[in-house]
Design a binder for these strands. Structure first.
Length: 407
RNA sequence: GGGAGCGUUCCCGAGUGGCCAAAGGGGGCAGACUGUAAAUCUGUUGUCAGUGACUUCGGUGGUUCGAAUCCACCCGCUCCCA
């Protein structure tokens, strides 16, 4: 099966500029392609992960990825899909974020022996001269056409600053630069980037009369159309400091039945033949598939060892077994005890299981708090250091939140 | 530059002097049901203390016994005209 066929079979492809040309090229040439990532946060998230996995697929098929960090474009801010203007970020933050991105990317894409290139568009965007840029690049863009672009639609109601309006030109210019410098012929990205990608391809064809192609990938959404990778706490991050490997694993372990196969196809390297077998499963049998999904993805991001630990921890907590190693842990100090004991309310707040005492109280009143296997129904219940020290002290909130307490 | 509006608790959105910690919806959390799924139903959703206190309605001052609600100025945003 060729790379192109596999992409199709996995439902990865959303849109392409020139389907036949792309297929032909991928089959017969070594293609240099690029995907851009704007460092708007200090860690990559699940959305980026999909792109990086795709990059890796291409790389394994012999093509050459360019990883573009948007150190320059982030100074402007991509308005795509945003309803409000993003806060303007300082250059310092952007640089810091870019460094964080780099480290994480190296896990998923092989940069050794020049097998992939990492560039930062700050290197060419920051020094641009306004008038020159307008005359050389700006002439090729029609405001009329831009305004009809899908990516600005959501902003036509809430307002769009001129700053952000220029984002499309910046990204198009990036493609032009990479085309000239590295012979990059293909830009890819999430489907929300379609407008930006085709405008770049148009620019190259217009200015240099060179071939330029674009392809976008399916956005990672649930069967209900919601974006995946978000939890109540915010994004699911690849940085273990921001989302622990255990939480990360649990996120995938808990995807809805209807989304498992889709995630398998989009995010893992599990062969399609195997996935086809999984597709036949129904009901609780899908739990096995979910474990596999979580293990596969966690392994890619955090390594085999962490994935195994997370799997074990989850099984222990949700199965019949006792307690777990990698549940979050809080150590108490002597100062946490008043008159030799700590109240359950304080304990819940201390461990972060409840944001406030009021909420902690509510949780208990509604019967959602357990210590070990015992349900706590008294809000005044308190524990001494002996209580906590003598056994594994696990507090559970609801069914899925566990916290270990030690001295 | 001229004119008209808007800014409410996590989000949307009611509220136009006391009955407002503030309707309703969404989301979240918990319970029941379950398969660590979905759907459904129930409860809950400012903080601290058990019927009370404190902080909140863009910011700062003011009017009033009393303001999210009135006034002034400031900040931010939207729309119309140029």
């Amino acid at each position: 099966m060729t790379l192109f066929e596999e992409l199709k079979a996995r439902d990865l492809i959303a849109q392409m500029t020139h389907e036949d040309e792309i297929e032909n090229m991928l089959n017969n040439d070594k293609v240099t392609f690029y995907i851009g990532f704007d460092p708007t946060a200090d860690s990559l998230h699940v959305g980026h992960f999909l792109q990086l996995v795709v990059m890796s697929r291409f790389q394994k098929a012999g093509h050459k990825p360019i990883c573009l960090l948007g150190g320059g474009t982030t100074m402007v801010g991509d308005p795509t899909g945003k309803t409000d203007m993003r806060k303007i970020m300082t250059q310092q933050d952007i640089m810091h974020n870019a460094e964080c991105f780099k480290k994480q990317m190296c896990r998923l894409v092989d940069f050794s022996d020049d097998k992939a290139i990492m560039v930062n568009n700050a290197d060419w965007l920051l020094e641009l001269n306004y008038i020159d840029f307008l005359r050389n690049v700006g002439v090729h863009f029609s405001v009329n056409r831009m305004l009809t672009a899908e990516c600005f639609k959501s902003r036509m109601e809430n307002g769009l600053s001129f700053l952000e309006f220029n984002y499309m030109l910046m990204q198009s210019y990036d493609f032009l630069v990479l085309s000239r410098k590295y012979g990059c012929m293909l830009q890819m990205g999430g489907n929300d980037q379609w407008s930006n990608i085709i405008s770049g391809a148009d620019l190259i064809r217009r200015v240099d009369q060179k071939p330029a192609l674009g392809m976008t990938f399916t956005l990672l959404t649930t069967s209900e159309g919601k974006k995946m990778g978000k939890t109540e706490k915010g994004a699911v991050w690849l940085d273990p400091e921001k989302t622990s490997p255990f939480e990360f694993f649990q996120y995938w372990r808990n995807v809805a039945d209807n989304d498992v196969i889709r995630c398998m196809k989009l995010l893992t390297f599990v062969p399609l033949s195997e996935i086809a077998e999984m597709e036949k499963l129904e009901g609780s049998a899908l739990n096995g598939v979910k474990e596999r999904l979580a293990t596969e993805i966690t392994t890619m991001v955090h390594g085999e060892e962490e994935a195994a630990k997370a799997l074990e921890a989850g099984r222990a907590l949700f199965g019949a077994g006792s307690a777990a190693g990698s549940a979050p842990t809080t150590a108490l100090a002597g100062a946490d005890f008043e008159n030799g004991a700590i109240g359950i309310l304080d304990l819940l707040v201390k461990t972060g299981l409840a944001p406030s005492k009021g909420e902690a109280r509510r949780l208990i009143q509604q019967g959602g708090v357990f210590v070990g296997d015992d349900k706590i129904d008294d809000v005044m219940k308190s524990f001494t250091p002996q209580d906590i020290g003598e056994r594994e002290f696990i507090i559970r909130k609801g069914k899925k939140s566990f916290h270990k307490v030690t001295l």
